[in-house]
Design a protein around this nucleic acid. Structure first.
Lengths: 185, 185
DNA sequence: GCTTATACGGAACGATGTTCCGCTTAGCAA
DNA sequence: TTGCTAAGCGGAACATCGTTCCGTATAAGC
């Protein structure tokens, strides 16, 4: 890959992160191009689909969440680790404005995004759930994928500027996990 | 109001319901206009904002939900009435494709829509919650607005074509209400 | 039938996504 | 250093869509 191509790709990613944070993932391509100091053609060459650009930006965040699950599991009691991880997830979606909408848009063009996000996060959450269930802190046999979908959905509206709201809804959902926990013992 | 205006308004509403169901609420205005057999100008005269059109369509559905709350409360045990009502809500959002996205878009133009929906449904839900809490079936002091927001969010993704998924997530949330119910007694 | 205010249709305008191609330049060889 | 070439670039061009506007058509009352 040519050096200038590499430079431009970095500039595009950096600009996209900024613009997406300010205007959401539907921001005009021209705006991103201008912020990166390149032409729109350059963006489309590197990212044929808009979702490719979004995916590239989100991938690292998602990976970080995956790793964080292991770190939390090692340093906290099972139930607490699970709660903390879910809370962090809410903050991620709330912060990365547009991630939520993109995930749930239903637009086929974004199909690969939820697939990747769920594919990465589900196993991480599964581990946390298993440990919490084994410790009797939550009910057993909670489907990780299902819980993850719910959590992502609840967190999405936080882009309205009310992360507090999302956190409270998440707490409500978490209580649902605790219901019937004793039966596990 | 002139007779032809009335006719056209009905035609527009009918066409919009069909087109929205097929393509979502972001469907091109021209498509709706063509389906209704009118010019786009006619639509914009009756509904200056896109959200006005959506609101008109949804209003009746929301009103129906409000009335249903009373009917359910009269014919079922408190906890069951609440569960049934929430389930019906999920079906509404799942069926009326685009309602969910419109509610959570965050676009200021849609501001009035969630205001109306929440304004109507919150009191209805409040009644069901109070009765269920008084009967000790769920924990007391659950904020109706908060629960409603969560329910609407969980239901939204059902437009993907998986109402089952939404219903399961809703069940999970409902269990959260039951957690700590005994403390109410 | 005549008048007039109401309502209509669709052209026109501006914004945006996406494609395409002539020009530029990095990387390399001599 | 110079020249070659293919990778890469920029932005004009095209298509689509939301929204506005105005000349024309017509419902309703006299």
């Amino acid at each position: 890959m040519r050096a200038d191509a590499r430079r431009n790709l970095d500039a595009v990613l950096k600009a996209a992160i900024t613009v997406f944070a300010e205007q959401g993932v539907d921001a005009p391509m021209r705006t991103i191009a201008a912020a990166a100091g390149v032409g729109v053609g350059t963006i489309y060459r590197h990212f044929p689909q808009r979702s490719d650009l979004i995916k590239a930006i989100i991938r690292r965040e998602v990976d970080a969440r995956t790793e964080r699950a292991a770190a939390l599991a090692a340093g906290h009691p099972p139930g607490e680790a699970l709660a903390l991880w879910l809370e962090g997830l809410v903050d991620l979606v709330a912060t990365k404005r547009g991630l939520g909408p993109a995930l749930h848009s239903g637009d086929p063009a974004y199909q690969s995004l939820p697939d990747y996000v769920l594919g990465q996060l589900t196993p991480a959450l599964e581990g946390l759930l298993d440990e919490a269930a084994a410790a009797g802190e939550i009910r057993p046999k909670t489907d990780a994928n299902e819980l993850l979908l719910a959590a992502l959905r609840l967190a999405s509206p936080a882009s309205d500027g009310k992360p507090e709201e999302a956190r409270r809804m998440m707490a409500l959902l978490f209580d649902g996990l605790r219901y019937g926990a004793k039966a596990a013992r």
